[in-house]
C-alpha cells in the first residue's frame, strides 16, 4: 500500500474527521449502493429459484433448491441462441461500422482541406440535436421499402450515420500537434496512412471511449428493433425479452423473466466494471470542461 494511501486512511479516520467520514461519506453511500445493488442482486437470485420459491408469501433470501431450469425455459419460449446471435451480430457489425465512419469523418473534418468543411460540420452538429424517435416513422417506411423488415441489416442500417462519435473524435483530433502530421506528409504518407499510423494510435483512448459507448448503445437498443422486427428469427435480445414478457406476463413466472433480464444486463455490467473509466468519460462528455 502506498504512503499516500495510508495517509488518506489516517486522515479520513482521524478524530477530527471521523464523524464527517462516517456520517457524511460512508453511511449515505452505503444506503445509495444498497438501493442500486439490491434489485440487481434480487434479479440474479430469483433467476436460480424454482417456481414454488417465487410464488410464495415467505420468500427466502437464497434459493433453497437452486436450479438452471429458468434459463432453459427462456430458451423454450424464445429461440435464445438465435436471439443472442442476432444481438451480437447487430452490436458488433453496427458498432464497428459506426466507429470507422466516425474516425474517417472526424479526420476529414480536421485534417483535409475543403472549402465547405464548416457547412458539413454544422450539418453533423445539428444532426446531434435530432432525437432519433422523431425519425422513426419515415425510417420505417424507408427500410420497409428496401426490404429490410425482419433483417439484421434493417436493424442497424438507419443508426450507422454517427454524429456523437464524429463530434467527440473531432474534438480529440483537434488537440493533436500539426507537426506530427507534417513530418509524415513530407515522408510521402497519404491520408489513409497518416490516419491509421499516426492519428488513430495516439487517439486510442478516445476511440475506445467512442467504441464502448457505441457498443453498449447498440446492445441496449430497443425501440427501433422492436418496430422493424416481429419474427423471432431476426429479433435482438431486448425485443425477444419483450416477447417473453408478453407471453409469460400474468402467470407469476418471474423466474424465467429474471433469467432473461440477467442475460441482457450481466454482459454490460461486466464490461462496465472492467472499463468504466472510458464509458463514464464518454457518457458525461460536455459536462466537464
Amino acid at each position: 500500500m502506498s504512503s499516500i494511501h495510508v495517509s488518506q486512511w489516517r486522515q479520513a479516520f482521524s478524530r477530527r474527521n471521523l464523524a464527517a467520514t462516517v456520517l457524511g461519506g460512508y453511511l449515505p453511500i452505503l444506503i445509495a449502493m444498497a438501493v442500486i445493488v439490491l434489485p440487481l442482486a434480487w434479479m440474479v437470485i430469483a433467476s436460480f429459484k424454482p417456481a414454488p420459491e417465487i410464488i410464495t408469501m415467505q420468500p427466502t433470501l437464497w434459493p433453497q433448491e437452486p436450479t438452471l431450469d429458468n434459463y432453459g425455459h427462456v430458451a423454450d419460449v424464445v429461440p435464445l441462441l438465435t436471439v443472442l446471435r442476432n444481438s451480437l451480430i447487430v452490436t458488433i457489425v453496427g458498432a464497428a461500422i459506426k466507429v470507422v465512419l466516425a474516425i474517417t469523418t472526424a479526420y476529414a473534418l480536421v485534417f483535409i482541406d475543403f472549402r465547405f468543411k464548416n457547412v458539413v460540420f454544422i450539418a453533423i452538429l445539428v444532426a446531434l440535436m435530432v432525437p432519433p424517435e422523431a425519425a422513426l416513422l419515415p425510417n420505417y417506411m424507408t427500410i420497409s421499402a428496401l426490404g429490410g423488415r425482419n433483417t439484421l441489416w434493417g436493424i442497424f442500417l438507419p443508426g450507422l450515420g454517427t454524429a456523437f462519435g464524429t463530434f467527440l473524435l473531432r474534438q480529440q483530433f483537434k488537440t493533436l500537434p500539426k507537426d506530427l502530421l507534417e513530418a509524415a506528409k513530407l515522408d510521402g504518407a497519404g491520408h489513409l496512412k497518416r490516419l491509421w499510423r499516426i492519428v488513430a494510435p495516439v487517439s486510442a483512448p478516445t476511440i475506445a471511449t467512442v467504441a464502448l459507448v457505441t457498443i453498449v448503445g447498440e446492445w441496449n437498443n430497443f425501440m427501433w428493433p422492436l418496430i422493424i422486427t416481429d419474427s423471432v428469427d431476426t429479433m435482438t435480445l431486448p425485443v425477444g425479452l419483450n416477447l417473453l414478457q408478453s407471453i409469460e406476463g400474468q402467470t407469476g413466472s418471474y423466474g424465467y423473466l429474471m433469467a432473461g433480464a440477467v442475460l441482457v444486463i450481466l454482459p454490460v455490467l461486466i464490461v462496465f466494471a472492467a472499463l468504466q473509466r472510458f464509458i463514464v468519460s464518454g457518457l458525461t462528455q460536455g459536462a466537464v470542461k
Binding site: N220, F222, L241, Q245, A261, V264
Partner: peptide, 9 residues
Amino acid sequence: VLSGVGVGM
C-alpha cells in the same frame, strides 16, 4: 448503462 428493458423487467 443497463438495458431499459432488463431494468423494467
